[in-house]
Amino acid sequence: MATVAKVAKVAKVALVTGGSRGIGAATAKQLAAAGYAVCINYLHNHAAAQQVVQDILAQGGQAIAIQADVAIESEVQRLFIELDQQLGRLDALVNNAGILLPQSRLEDLTAERINRLFNTNVCSYFLCCREAVLRMSTRHGGQGGAIVNVSSAASRLGSPNEYIDYAATKGAIDTLSKGLSLEVAEEGIRVNCVRPGFIDTDMHTDGGEPDRLQRVKANIPLKRGGEASEVAAAISFLLSDAASYITGSFLDVAGGR
């Protein structure tokens, strides 16, 4: 079921997956302020997604919210069809949806947990990229566009003793970003990747340690956790015309780690 706010025709349209909270919500708001009509994808929290829509509308922006589980192929297809119908041509995709499970060493991981993480954190990115490319690529009659995949500094650091499986999913996103950037460079699509570090969001609660930033901040060169708005600024830049000659690149937003 889609939550719809009346949207007029605009120059650019952006989709943000996992847009109801944290980095996704901050990105949706910044893109709306930059003039995009924004589709906020969410999984469960309708109220949170609708609040992001209302915040954007209150600032004079344009937004809708569409529920879909982006780990399921048919749901991704429905999401993009509804987006086509409600906003028109897609110009920008932010792949941000993902999950973090409680901290664990590798020796305690199960196949069920590993598969769940890879299905949500990796398969969803592939599926959304596919649908975006089918709409954006000049090879398919599109007018080009830009994709930003949200990875993590964990892809470089490995997250030993805590989130080695999550880190591995983000390593896959790094590879996807580089490969896809080369695949579609001549088709008018730029693909880049943002790798956040320790960011102050409720994802740490999902991992079982709400106060994790307080524990680790002494090891961060800037001596603090990052804000969702700081990651959103990096994403917004990479989608913008100011980054028109940037593709296949990785921007770490990790306080120096």
Results as ranks from 00 to 15, higher is better:
G60W: 03
D252Q: 12
G226W: 08
S240I: 03
A243V: 12
A168T: 13
A218N: 15
A153Y: 05
L251C: 12
K29C: 09
A167Y: 02
K223V: 02
R116D: 08
E131R: 01
L109A: 15
N95F: 03
I99H: 01
T27C: 00
R130S: 07
S249T: 10
L101R: 13
R224H: 07
V52N: 05
L251M: 15
L100A: 07
G255R: 04
V13W: 05
N119M: 04
A33I: 06
M1R: 07
V70R: 00
D55I: 09
H204K: 10
K9G: 09
A65T: 02
L127T: 05
A37H: 12
C123A: 15
S104T: 13
S155Q: 13
G88H: 09
D91M: 06
A33E: 14
R78L: 08
V148P: 08
S20P: 01
A63F: 10
V148A: 05
E162N: 14
L222P: 00
R135T: 06
T205Q: 14
L43N: 12
L117Q: 15
Q77I: 12
A172D: 04
F118E: 01
T201F: 02
I199L: 02
A234F: 01
Q50P: 00
R257T: 15
S244L: 03
F250D: 08
S152N: 09
A2H: 10
R89H: 10
G256F: 05
T169V: 04
K12Y: 04
E209V: 08
E162K: 15
Q54S: 09
G22W: 08
E82Y: 04
V122A: 02
V7L: 14
A65K: 06
A185T: 05
Q85R: 13
